[in-house]
């Protein structure tokens, strides 16, 4: 399912005139500094922030003008941390909430929930209380809910936040292996470079660059948008683009073995 944002203006985050496309089967990353409007932009996709102008098309239909809340939730599933910890849902119950926009028979729903848990490797933890899971397990449970929702598009809002490095790789490998159409806001630029087919760069609500990671993540752009010195190389272990960072300004003094900067 294709996602097309055209001339998008949002009342928050300074998002003005954003254009963005995700082709079917693509994994597209949205990067930008804190407050650049990544999450804000995603919220317009899952009907939480109504655009002031512009269109959000998913599978050719306007999410805000043509589709109802329920119909749009049948197309777009979201992985994001939005609380809800006060009540003790089990993992299976949480994943079952992904069936909300559908009106299926309970038995069919249970099969879909079980299959989703199986796909993210959480079948053995179906009866655990969600709030007792580790960070990585929580994200996988939320991913399973998104799968149970059976939308054609997966929206991920900083899915790797608060995960350790192993869990970050595990989660993104898992998402890639699902071969879904996905739009993900990512904080960690090297993860974006390693996992995304294409990147969009947001700066103060405007899309300032887009394209393949190696074309987008230039030292000039990273200095301009993120305010860092960057070197784009190749990860010797994976062969994917890899960034090394340093603060802008004068060359930092290298630390010596003795700790004496002279």
């Amino acid at each position: 399912m294709r996602v097309e944002l055209t001339g998008l203006h949002l009342p928050l985050g300074g998002v003005a005139g954003a254009d963005l496309r995700v082709e079917p089967g693509e994994f597209v990353g949205l990067i930008g500094p804190n407050g650049s409007g990544k999450s804000t932009l995603l919220r317009s996709l899952y009907r939480t922030l109504r655009p002031e102008a512009g269109t959000v098309l998913v599978g050719g239909d306007d999410v805000w003008r043509t589709l109802s809340a329920r119909r749009s939730a049948q197309r777009i599933a979201v992985v994001a941390q939005h609380g809800g910890d006060g009540f003790d849902f089990t993992v299976a119950e949480l994943v079952a909430t992904g069936r909300t926009p559908h009106r299926g028979a309970p038995a069919a729903d249970r099969r879909i929930v079980a299959a989703a848990l199986e796909r993210v490797g959480m079948a053995g933890k179906a009866d655990r209380v969600y709030t007792t899971l580790s960070g990585g397990e929580r994200q996988r449970a939320l991913l399973a809910r998104a799968l149970a929702q059976q939308g054609g598009v997966l929206v991920l809002d900083e899915p790797t936040n608060h995960l350790d490095v192993h869990a970050q790789f595990e989660l993104l490998d898992l998402i890639r292996s699902l071969r879904v159409t996905a739009l993900a806001a990512l904080h960690e630029l090297n993860l974006a470079a390693a996992y995304c087919d294409r990147l969009y760069v947001l700066d103060a609500g405007r899309i300032v660059a887009h394209g393949a990671p190696a074309d987008v993540l230039t030292p000039d752009l990273l200095a301009e948008v993120f305010g860092v010195r960057a070197h784009l190389g190749v990860n010797p272990l994976t062969g994917r683009p890899n960034l090394a960072f340093a603060p802008l300004g004068q060359t930092p003094v290298p630390l010596t073995e003795t700790g004496d900067p002279r």
Binding site: T48, S72, A80, H82, T97, T100
Partner: peptide, 16 residues
């Protein structure tokens, strides 16, 4: 159930 999970999640799950 969706409402228990917060406004944004409920909206993402198709609740007006």
């Amino acid at each position: 159930n969706a409402m228990l999970l917060g406004d944004e999640t409920a909206a993402a799950l198709g609740v007006a």
